[in-house]
Simulated assay, not measured.
Amino acid sequence: MDLPEALRRRLEDFSRTVLFDQSGTRPSTTENDAFVQHDKRVLSSLHLQMSLYFNMWFFPWWWISETVMLHLKYPALPDYYKFILVTVLILMTLIEAIRLFLGYAGNLQEKVPELAGFWLLSILLQFPLILFQLFNEAILIQPLERGVHIVLSMFILTQALYGFVALRDMVRHTGRQFHLRQFD
């Protein structure tokens, strides 16, 4: 049993204005505005959000294990590696906090600049730093370090891939909305 067209249209308008549109204004009836109103797809990436969530809970364990391992091997390291590893630990901690914040804000609020900043920090800073710690044998890599570095590098790699896809989709959607609003 189908609803009459007039009743279905009124229910759609009611649900759109009362349930989904928090401003309380009625959507306009022009063709372009109607398309923009109906095109409220969720663009945030579930895969990226899940990876960010688990990374947020894993990072303190990575930091604790990295700090303990650095403390244990510190006397055996040359002076220049002592300086480098302490600097890398401080940089990675700051970058990871900023990166996770930008990832959450960019993905959940569907903001392109924040998501782009997250993606750039992941690719240009965090991934090379974790690869340095993972593959440089001169820093006396311990088995626990290798394990947590592998897990963190997998988080960063998957977030970079899913972040790129989410960023591409958000940019395309924003571009389409911009072109549609030019005709008003």
Rank of each mutant, 00 (worst) to 15 (best):
S51I: 04
M50V: 07
L120F: 06
W57S: 06
G106I: 12
Q182A: 11
I98P: 00
T30A: 07
K40N: 13
L115F: 00
W63R: 05
E145I: 00
A34C: 08
F59A: 06
E31L: 11
D184S: 09
L77P: 07
I84F: 10
F59M: 06
L102D: 07
E96S: 15
Y53E: 02
R176P: 00
A34V: 06
D39T: 08
R8I: 01
Y81M: 02
G106Q: 01
G175E: 11
F183N: 12
D39K: 09
K82E: 03
D79Q: 12
K82R: 15
P60Q: 04
V171W: 02
A6L: 05
I90L: 11
E137S: 15
N32Q: 15
I84Y: 08
W57V: 09
R172C: 03
H47L: 13
W62L: 14
L121R: 04
L115A: 03
P113I: 13
L3F: 07
I95M: 11
S153K: 07
A76C: 03
R99P: 00
E96V: 10
D21W: 04
L11G: 03
V88W: 01
F183A: 11
I84H: 05
I95W: 07
I98Y: 08
I130E: 04
R41Q: 13
G163H: 12
